[in-house]
Amino acid sequence: MEDHGDTVTVPVLSGDARLLDLLEPLRGKGSVHSVFARVVNLLTPDGTLIALAARGSGDAPRTLTADVSDWSAYHLSAGLGVTFATGNVSVDGRRLRLATVGARAWRPAAPSLAAPPPGVVAAAADALDRICRAHGPLGGMLGAAPGAGPMERAVVDALHAGRTTLLDAVRDGGAAPVRLGVLALLGLGPGLTPAGDDFLTGLALVAALPGSRLAALRPPLREVLAAHGRRTTALSLATLHEAAEGRVRSELLALVALLATGDPGAALHASVRKVLAIGHSSGGDTLSGLVAGLHLEEELRGSL
């Protein structure tokens, strides 16, 4: 399609502060990586995967939220060129320019796990686990759906085995077994972000919280991501890289912050439901990683 001149400038409402800083000096050509109704993923000139979300999507790492209801009007497709320039990003051949000027900077802040007294984290994890099991999606980390075929059952079994391997390795504390445990889950399972990766995201988030006893998980996780990134999808890999730094979607951070207060009360339910609404099954699988991480946290504290 030709550029018809009257380019639409869409304001970016908010964005990951680190991404906005990254974009500030960035010049050159990138491309459209993938297109969904409400989210478009781009590759920057240096190959970083970033997301453009429609308004109301909630802040997330490497994500800009733009003032559109969805992207369908712009006829975007994977492979289109994207020009990164001062204060704006535009899609070649489409009348779309995103202006980052005035965007609210989102700075994800991970709450500390140092403060809560003993038992509180475990209680929070139990509550989370109950809600998750009552409302979470089946077919991934939470077990097979009733009447599932052999393929789904085999995947669920493999996820369960990978989970056990990884959690045992974290308990033992050796980097090499942790690497194997991560590899047992990376890229495994159904979904656009495979369920195993979602689990790893939840676990990595706990490990990245200030004061976490799981911090030893992060170096081998980063190594695996660097060395074996091709074992999963680009979207999943980007999500995991960020989670290992404690940077996850706002809904998930809000939930963790609520848990860290030690007394989530009635607000917990609503907060968990927001996380469960992420993707089709991603939210539930991520929560199961979070629950596992919080349980481990308590276990490892007890041993001190």
Partner: peptide
């Protein structure tokens, strides 16, 4: 990263979307 949300009712989709 950001993924999808569930479907609203047709009326809510009309009011919340672009005509």
């Amino acid at each position: 990263m950001t993924t999808e949300h569930t479907e609203p009712t047709p009326a809510a989709a009309l009011f919340g979307g672009e005509l």
